[in-house]
Structure formats: structure tokens, C-alpha cells
């Protein structure tokens, strides 16, 4: 069944809901990745992502417009 699921999302049949989602702009490779997880893993992944975004927001410091020839420091 795994291959049928993969095929459905990676090569959506014409007229299918997956084809419409792909046309809409949904990245179905990410959906397929999620479907390989258990429900609990999906919640943990969501929590981890929310936490990551919150940390990112907390760490952002706006310096100003980027100069065209400025070197980027990492």
C-alpha cells in the first residue's frame, strides 16, 4: 500500500483531489512525509515547529536595509 500512497501523492491521477491540491500549490511531498508518521509524531513535529518559529522570532534583530555590496556575517 505504501507505494500506492506514494504514487497517489507524487504522481496524482488526473482529476484526483491530489491533482487539484498540487495545482493549488500544496507541496504533497510534505503531506506524504506527514502521513508516514504516527498521529503522536505529527503532534510532536507540530509542537517542535511552533517552538522553532517562536525562538526564531525571539532572536530576530532588525539591523536595517541590506546594502547591495555588504558581506553577510554568519
Amino acid at each position: 500500500m505504501a507505494t500506492e500512497l506514494e504514487s497517489y501523492f507524487l504522481n496524482p491521477p488526473a482529476g484526483s483531489a491530489a491533482a487539484r491540491a498540487a495545482e493549488f500549490g500544496t507541496d504533497l511531498t510534505l503531506t506524504l512525509e506527514n502521513l508516514r508518521l504516527t498521529p503522536e509524531e505529527r503532534i510532536r513535529k507540530l509542537d517542535s515547529f511552533i517552538e522553532g518559529v517562536a525562538k526564531l522570532k525571539a532572536s530576530v534583530r532588525v539591523i536595517g536595509p541590506t546594502e547591495p555590496n555588504a558581506k553577510q556575517h554568519h
Binding site: 500500500m1 484526483s16 483531489a17 491530489a18 491540491a21 503531506t31
Partner: peptide
Amino acid sequence: LPELEAIQEAQALKNQTQ
């Protein structure tokens, strides 16, 4: 909605196969 409808259709196909 488009992604949820795709997941719903995939679940239906899976149930049909089983």
C-alpha cells in the same frame, strides 16, 4: 481544503484496497 481533500481521497483509496 485542497490538502485535506487529497488526504480524504487517499484514505478512501486505502480503505477500498483493504
